[in-house]
Amino acid sequence: MNIDSIKNGTVIDHIPAGRGMKLYELLGLDKLDCPVAIIKNAVSSQMGRKDIIKIDADIPVSFDIIGYIAPNVTVNIIKGGKLIEKKSIELPETLIDVIKCKNPRCITSTEQELKHIFRLDDPEKRVYRCAYCDTKAE
């Protein structure tokens, strides 16, 4: 399968197979009118199978969302058809409005204007907790 290379935009590579669509949704890529390609189950020498997202437009993407869904991915920034930056993404310390707290007793369940903030509690187990009620993110 061939996907055209992009001139200006972002390639998110080494996404664990199966997480590409989730990342597509959380990054809000469905709302863009530029070309976006999702490659699922591409063959990878390192990972066996991987997903790849290519965004053919110079728009900012949230590294926090990428890091939360797929830590250790590589984000390639392309300008003028050339790779100008290659970033390795790590697990973010804080997530703001990426996921919602599901505790019905949490203040965020009734006060709609509050941002949903989660803090990284255990990097090894990838555990995040709500900054308000300490409930573990699902």
């Binding site: 949490c106 203040i107 308000y132």
Partner: peptide, 10 residues
Amino acid sequence: RHPKEGAPLV
């Protein structure tokens, strides 16, 4: 005192 968890932090 508040019944919602996290209200005093807010």
